[in-house]
Each structure stands twice: as structure tokens, then as C-alpha cells.
Write a protein that binds this DNA or RNA. Sequence first.
DNA 1: TGTCTATGTAAGTCATGACTTACGAAGATG
DNA 2: CATCTTCGTAAGTCATGACTTACATAGACA
Lengths: 107, 107
Amino acid sequence: MTYEDAISALADPTRRAILDRLRAGPAAVGAVAEGLPVSRPAVSQHLRVLSDAGLVTMTPAGNHRLYSLAPTGIDSLRHYLDSLWDDALAAFQRATEEKAKQKGKKT
Amino acid sequence: MTYEDAISALADPTRRAILDRLRAGPAAVGAVAEGLPVSRPAVSQHLRVLSDAGLVTMTPAGNHRLYSLAPTGIDSLRHYLDSLWDDALAAFQRATEEKAKQKGKKT
DNA sequence: TGTCTATGTAAGTCATGACTTACGAAGATG
DNA sequence: CATCTTCGTAAGTCATGACTTACATAGACA
């Protein structure tokens, strides 16, 4: 449930495809697997990882289980990125100023 | 330079450690490697990946090369996450309303 | 020019993880 | 109860990539 779990979960293309499928709305494992070039157990394993990372939630519904997007894991990752973004922007501005000085300082 | 490159680049713990080091300011390869439990060539290879993902930039400085954080790659990833965030929030709200209805509808 | 420093690249090793098939458990349905 | 559907898990295979050492290149400096 840390932001690192979210990152490594999102690193896999198949898992991103699963998330894309869930953006349209909640879906069962079989329904998700139908639109993908991998087996149903593979999808099941991926959903486990996504769930551990807080990126999806599961709600039992009789025979099957509905998976849907969860804001939790995404939020932690957003915070990390925002923080990194601040420092990157600061570094970029410092570099720009440096160049301006370099340009003015002849010889 | 896509957001997918940025994600898979960030997925590695060593690369995140390198970025953390660069948050304090630009640094050369050797300086970065000193604070890490891996060899200098390993750091060099990681910086290559980070650079391809648009997460760092390199500026030659005489004998050595200074690497610094770059906003570019981070930005693309932020956009992806923001978009995913919107859908996740919508899904969460729908689920909440669903539960409210379920509660009101007795028998 | 000769040498030292700082770095990138090549080649090879090894662990991680994504995928498969086979199987077992839980709820719906006749 | 018997069966079908839906799903998670176990075990094993295989590719990807992170790391190492060895080597080659480019600039600083005597």
C-alpha cells in the first residue's frame, strides 16, 4: 500500500491494460480477461497485485467478484510525483539562471 | 519519452535512489555512485534509462558530466495519473451512491 | 606527450516476475 | 443432489533486466 507498490504495479503493461478496462466501470475477472491476450489466471494474479497496491478494490457479488478502480493507491503516487515535480522544477529554474549568468559573463 | 517509459524507469528502487540524490542538486556519476551500494557502471546504465525517460538531463562539464532532475518526464506521468485519478474518483463516488441506495432499499 | 580522472559500453551471470496448465473451492441453477 | 459457472492458487517454464568485471574513450594537467 505504499507509493512504491503502486509504481511497480503500474510498471507492467498488462496491468495498465487491466486498469484501462476498469476505467469504464467495475468488471469481473472473466470479463477483463476476455479483452486481453492473456489467460484468466494471469489476470487474477495481476488483480491481486493491483489490489495490494491499493489501485483496485474487490466486492463479492454472488458467484463472481467485481473489481473497480480505487483512488487510494493513485493518491499516494500522486503525492510522491508532486514532491519530485517541485524539486525538478527548482533544478530546472536554477539551471536556467545559471545559463543567463553564463551568457552575461564574457571572458 | 512516453509516460510508460517514465513509469518503468521509476519502478526500480536503485533508480529512485538516484533521483533522490539528484533532488539535492546536480551531481556527477561518480558522486551519485558513492552513496549507493552498486557499482559506478550500474549507475551509468541507470542514468541512461532515466535520461531516455526524460526524468534527468545531462550537461557536459569539462572532464565529467552533470546530471540533474528534469520536469519533462515527470509531467507526462502526472498527466496520466491525473486522468486515472478522475476515473477512480468517479468510480468511488458511484460505489458510494450504490451503497446508499442499497441501504435505503430494505427487502 | 604521458598520465590521471571521469565516464560509457560490451559481455556474461543470475534473480525476479509474468505467463501457462492443472487443480480445488464457493455460489448459482436444474 | 448433481452440475455448471466463476474464480483463486500451486507448480513449473522462460524472458527480461539489474548487476558485475573488463575494456575503450575524452578531457585535464604535469
